[in-house]
Structures are given as structure tokens and as C-alpha cells.
């Protein structure tokens, strides 16, 4: 599979939020401002890419040889939780400016189902190491694109006259629905 196909298919065609419904909570919750949305997207990109790189050797070099493949859910969630903690500590110690901008989002990511979802999907689809990392990276970039677009639209909706009963979550969901329709247009690309 070439890089371009992986990029188009995991970023646009089967967008992680708009067609797979993973990571809906941050998508709806952290999309009030473009800057925070971009920060969340960047943090998610970082963690998903790292997580798909780490879960691959864990599965194929530890779980599978020992016939423990059924433990993947437990192993992966623990790895992701530990990874998030570790990334937080490393950033705090060595890259304070990056920590300042991404730090608040890191604890939110452990329970982001996109991270675990991508890790499990990689194993189910039988991707090799390079494909796993690339799928992780581009899926996360798809999340970044979707959440930034939604945040930009929400910033403009602030000034619009939304019907009373649609204020708050309903109008955000309608927006997400329209975005999902737009992303359906990519379906024929790959």
C-alpha cells in the first residue's frame, strides 16, 4: 500500500470523527475556539502516532508469541495511559514551551477512544509497522482537520441568530452532520 493511499483513506475517506465516530467527546467539547482545538488536535496527533508505534511491537513481539493475543485490550489501554503520563513528564522536563501549549490536553487523551480505536484497528487490519505508524499519523491529522474546521465554524455561529431550542449542543451536532455530508464526498477517491 503506498503512502498516498493511506493518507487519503485514513485522513479523508474514513475520517476518524466524521465517519468512524471515534473521539466524539473532545470533538464536541474542545471545539469552542480555534486555538484550543488546534492544541487538542496537535496533542492527539502526537499521542496517536506514538501509541501506534509502541503497540505494534508489544502485540507482535510479546503478546502473540506468548499466545496472549486476547489480552490486547487490557495491554493497550495500560500502555496508552502510561504513555500519556510519560509524554506529559518528558514534555514538562525537556520542552516547557510545548508543555505549556499541550499540557492541559494530555490528561484528556487517555480516555479518548480514537487512540485505542486506531491501535486496535491497526492490529485487526494486519498492517505492518510502517503502515501502522502512517495510519496513526494520518488518522490523527484527520482528527486535527475535523476539529479545527468545526471550531472555526462554531466561532462564526456565535454571531448568528440560532433558534432558541437549537442553541448549544444541537447546532454543533447539525454542523457536524453537514461536515460529515461534505466528507462523504471523498468516498470515491480510493
Amino acid at each position: 500500500m503506498n503512502i498516498f493511499v493511506i493518507m487519503i483513506s485514513s485522513m479523508l475517506v474514513s475520517n476518524v470523527v466524521l465517519s468512524q465516530f471515534l473521539g466524539i467527546c473532545p470533538f464536541l467539547g474542545v471545539s469552542k475556539k480555534v486555538e484550543t482545538a488546534a492544541g487538542m488536535g496537535a496533542a492527539v496527533t502526537f499521542v496517536i502516532t506514538l501509541a501506534s508505534a509502541i503497540t505494534y511491537p508489544i502485540y507482535y513481539f510479546i503478546l502473540e508469541p506468548l499466545d496472549l493475543a486476547y489480552l490486547e485490550t487490557i495491554a493497550f489501554i495500560l500502555i496508552i495511559a502510561a504513555l500519556v503520563q510519560f509524554v506529559e513528564m518528558v514534555l514538562k522536563k525537556f520542552m516547557p514551551p510545548l508543555y505549556e501549549s499541550l499540557g492541559v490536553f494530555l490528561p484528556l487523551i487517555t480516555t479518548n477512544c480514537a487512540v485505542l480505536g486506531v491501535a486496535i484497528n491497526n492490529i485487526t487490519n494486519g498492517c505492518n509497522f510502517i503502515e501502522s505508524v502512517l495510519t496513526g499519523l494520518f488518522t490523527a491529522l484527520g482528527f486535527l482537520v475535523a476539529i479545527v474546521i468545526l471550531a472555526a465554524i462554531r466561532e462564526r455561529i456565535e454571531y448568528n441568530d440560532v433558534p432558541n431550542s437549537f442553541k448549544g449542543t444541537p447546532i454543533v451536532l447539525v454542523t457536524a452532520s453537514l461536515m460529515a455530508i461534505a466528507f462523504c464526498g471523498f468516498a470515491g477517491l480510493v
Binding site: 466524521l18 465517519s19 465516530f21 437549537f166 449542543t169 444541537p170 447546532i171 451536532l173 447539525v174 457536524a176 452532520s177 453537514l178 460529515a180 455530508i181 462523504c184
Partner: peptide
């Protein structure tokens, strides 16, 4: 399809 899920929940 996917967009319908968002729309139903919105309404």
C-alpha cells in the same frame, strides 16, 4: 449513514 447519526441526535 454517518451524517444521519449527528442529525438525529441534534434534533
Amino acid at each position: 449513514l454517518a451524517p444521519g447519526a449527528f442529525l438525529v441526535l441534534a434534533f
